[in-house]
């Protein structure tokens, strides 16, 4: 198993949470939307935090590539955090259209971000961090996978 495998799976998990929040808001089920968005935010934050504090620093240390692809990914994380906040503000005001607009934007940004990670950055990590694969893979699994399994 590739060391980044838990991250791939966690992307899918976050997608599902996103879709649930979006569907609830579209149906005007505000309490459900509140709960699902909160859960989505928590998992997304967990994912970003895991990458930014564990995977990226390890990759940067192993390859010396600082300010390269990981920096771009960090910037996109910041953009996505902004959009999630925009969704939250719209939800607080119970503005369905504002929520949908921010959600639509986040979805595309998030999907193209995930594709870049899954097709480019994660394979680079798998190769560059091969010597620490087991330790890192387990650490990633602990931080991410547990949540996927328990919350389903």
């Amino acid at each position: 198993m590739a060391l980044t495998e838990p991250l791939h799976e966690h992307h899918k998990y976050c997608d599902d949470l996103f879709a649930g929040a979006e569907a609830a808001a579209a149906a005007g089920d505000w309490p459900a939307a509140d709960a699902r968005l909160a859960q989505f935010r928590e998992e997304l934050e967990n994912h970003f935090h895991t990458e930014e504090t564990l995977l990226f620093p390890s990759f940067e240390a192993a390859t010396g590539m600082i300010g390269g692809p990981t920096q771009v990914m960090r910037l996109e994380h910041a953009q996505m955090r902004e959009l999630v906040e925009q969704m939250e503000r719209a939800l607080e005001r119970r503005e369905g259209s504002g929520f949908a607009g921010a959600a639509e934007t986040l979805l595309i940004l998030m999907q193209q971000h995930n594709l870049k990670e899954e097709n480019i950055l994660y394979p680079m990590c798998d190769r560059g961090l091969a010597s620490q694969a087991e330790a890192l893979g387990t650490a990633l699994q602990e931080r991410l996978k547990a949540k996927c399994l328990t919350s389903d």
């Binding site: 259209s97 607009g101 595309i108």
Partner: peptide, 11 residues
């Protein structure tokens, strides 16, 4: 940048 929020796709 991150200082000002651009309009969303639906806007």
């Amino acid at each position: 940048g991150l200082a000002v929020l651009p309009p969303t796709m639906h806007e």
